[in-house]
Design a protein around this nucleic acid. Sequence first.
DNA 1: TCTAAATGTAAAATAAACTTTACTAAAAGT
DNA 2: ACTTTTAGTAAAGTTTATTTTACATTTAGA
Lengths: 66, 66
Amino acid sequence: MKNTIRVERAILNISQAELADRVQVTRQTINAIELEKYAPSAVLAMKIARVFGKRVEEVFQLEEGD
Amino acid sequence: MKNTIRVERAILNISQAELADRVQVTRQTINAIELEKYAPSAVLAMKIARVFGKRVEEVFQLEEGD
DNA sequence: TCTAAATGTAAAATAAACTTTACTAAAAGT
DNA sequence: ACTTTTAGTAAAGTTTATTTTACATTTAGA
């Protein structure tokens, strides 16, 4: 699954650690998702989208293999 | 996490098995999510919402504890 | 340049999602 | 009433997400 977390973070100008803090996960979890090492849970995806003031589908996009 | 899968299924008039089939999981997985025994992955949540022609946030809602 | 902040990474452990098989019960159709 | 479809459940197993600790690298600022 693709995502635009890096771009959204840049817009808000917040670090991975700051985002992690706001959605209550570790910094490593945000890093792994941002680098697409794995896909988040729906709960986490929704929290992240909410921080960015966007819909889940605007931040995360399904890919072929998903 | 709450969801309106049952209602959306009723609108489309499809069974849990039919939905499971369309999003490529087992019937038990749909049943468990529908009964809120656990929350789906983001990938699955997006596929389910897509079947219903709705946004993820329209089908799934974060709760206090999430 | 020196330092601090931010990011990338990795291994081991835990938790949570999902599968498989299988059985029960309810609901709907005939 | 009988049969079929749909839904609920459960235990054991596999896979994936997330945490923890820790260290290395890059970026930015003073």
